[in-house]
Nucleic acid binder design. Structure first.
Lengths: 346, 346
DNA sequence: ATGAAAGCGCTAACAC
DNA sequence: GTGTTAGCGCTTTCAT
């Protein structure tokens, strides 16, 4: 910058103005500065700028790296098993990127490298004006400290820290409506629920919704999912479907999966075993990933507005940046039941 | 940081050491510092750190925002029309993120807001140690200037600036092999090629590969694609298929689409018109998106290692960061023909 | 409209 | 092992 100033015969202050507020500099001067900058290959330092102005123009996102181990395998086996994970965080990223761009921000993303130094969050936190965190990515303690200095919004998870903004989707309400549909509209009574890790707040909330529907309908209310899988992948869904099938006389009339991935895997497994869907058994998912619309039979599911999750996160951050003293906000995004072929509709 | 130093009774240098090189500080001292930091809600400033150390620990990615207008429509219509665009840049993002993480970097992403100030690139460039650019995202002139100051790698496009590293996928070779397969292995002779915007280097390269195969086989060599679409979307693919069908006597034996999205759209359109694939006509795509494997009939296509594109980009950046004087590298990533049902295989 | 000067919060020698 | 001291490259009053 000093070089540019010298070369164009002005002061560094003027060079600064050319970039920050072009109109405050006479056109002729501006041209000379720009020309000099071009010749010298000058690139303004975002760091210095950020240091001096105390803002970065960047918003951040921290997310867990669940997809990793499978992604590796996937590339080789062509199994596509990690699409769900990919789509979930990818859609949030896209949503945030879009919204951030609208507001003039760039997006810094980082997956939570397990066990590293406290580096990850710290690294992100120090370089952004505010950021979003996917549930179970960052130790609550760290978040507590960081959120004292800059805006943080929690995504999809319990509200661990009560002074933070946070956003969830209506998991329980969505699953409840889905199960109600199965029970009332299709007259099914023996529903099996396949959940995930008990630590997953989403999967658990969905199970609660499922229970609610059972209770509403006067059916037996299960204490726990009929089955649980670890990563909620396609392969695990297929296995779960077979397990359920092999229970013999107890075969359910519907398999309610906690996410689409498992449901898709189940569809394949059932096809292999010659079980017809939805004639012999209904199958449902949750999420509304693109696949769910394309598989045959198309999958009845609950559509989650994932991209909006990202967009709302940015909105909340921007709002809080504008008014730091605003009360913490807690949003629940609505979901929509998608009735398709796998439950006997469409 | 000064506050932390004071509170824990050490100098700022020691505080700095606690974060940068914990082992160089006695355990007791370290604890006191960390404790003070916690109490004060101290978050190290990435900007200041970057300024002083002249590195950011962040890598960047600039990509075009083609998906935008459709994404909007998509959310409402449930048509899923923007999946391709989404997957392409998303996969690159994921690939880069993964690789970046392995090397201890975070990822800064920004889509090229058309017509904004020269802000976008400049903003990114000033905040990263190096970055990747998707073809046709940033004016060559800007890149020229910026690449004098930090490593830049061009992705998927012509090598606009010869001193830059750049990576492409084997578009021409892949399409050529695909067309060869159709002609030689399936004995098809009347192939129709549906391309995209003439400005798209990928689509054009694929068309060249198609021509090569025609020439190789002694078939008439077309000067231009039989049809072009603007955005290469599903809807456009469907329309293209109908147009091709309506040409009456000239109906081709195979429709070769420049990407999977269009091919998937075509599959739907043909189904609606009662044309059987592959019995009545073969259909092929290019990209190897997840959908291609799932549609019925499954789509014969050329699988592009998009995620690897991102990973390689990071490798190149890291290498150049380590040795700035290394000669520019030019990689061509291999593609693989995926023979599936839509051409009569599988 | 432009210049001068005082930091922004940290790292990196270099002393001790 | 820890403290001192320069900057890093920019923004921002405050003058002029």
């Amino acid at each position: 910058m000093y070089d540019v100033a010298e070369r164009s015969g002005v002061s560094i202050a003027t060079v600064s103005r050319v970039y920050r507020n072009p109109d405050s500099v006479r056109a002729g001067t501006r041209e000379r500065v720009l020309e000099a900058a071009r010749e010298l290959g000058y690139v303004p330092s975002g760091n210095a700028r950020g240091l001096a102005s105390r803002t970065t123009g960047v918003l951040g996102l921290c997310f867990p790296d669940y997809a990793d181990p499978e992604a590796e395998a996937d590339a080789e086996t062509d199994s596509g098993a990690d699409d769900a994970a990919m789509l979930y965080s990818d859609q949030i990223i896209r949503g945030m990127e879009r919204a951030a761009r609208r507001h003039g921000y760039a997006l810094l993303i980082a997956a939570s490298l397990q066990g590293g130094p406290e580096s990850l969050v710290a690294k992100v936190a120090g370089r952004v004006d505010g950021f979003a965190v996917l549930a179970q990515t960052v130790p609550t303690e760290d978040l507590d400290v960081i959120s004292r200095r800059l805006p943080v919004v929690m995504l999809a998870g319990p509200r661990e820290i009560d002074h933070l903004d946070h956003i969830v989707v209506a998991n329980a309400a969505g699953e409840r409506e889905l199960a109600r549909h199965l029970i009332e509209d299709h007259g099914l009574r023996r529903l099996a629920f396949v959940g995930g890790d008990p630590e997953s707040p989403d999967a658990e909330a969905r199970f609660r919704g499922f229970r609610d529907a059972c209770r509403d309908a006067g059916l037996p209310v299960p204490d726990a999912p009929d089955l649980r899988t670890g990563m909620m992948t396609r392969a695990e869904g297929a296995r779960a479907a077979e397990t359920l099938l092999d229970r013999g006389a107890e075969r359910p009339e519907a398999m309610v999966f906690a996410n689409d991935q498992m449901a898709v895997g189940a569809l394949r497994a059932l096809e292999r075993r010659g079980v017809r869907v939805p004639e012999d058994i209904a199958v449902t998912g949750f999420d509304g990933i693109p696949l769910s619309r394309i598989v045959r039979p198309s999958l009845t599911t609950v559509r989650q507005p994932i991209r909006q999750l990202g967009e709302q996160a940015v909105e909340l951050l921007v709002q809080r940046l504008a008014d730091p003293s605003r009360d913490p906000v807690s949003l629940e995004l609505p979901v929509a039941l998608a009735r398709r072929a796998s439950c006997g509709c469409g």
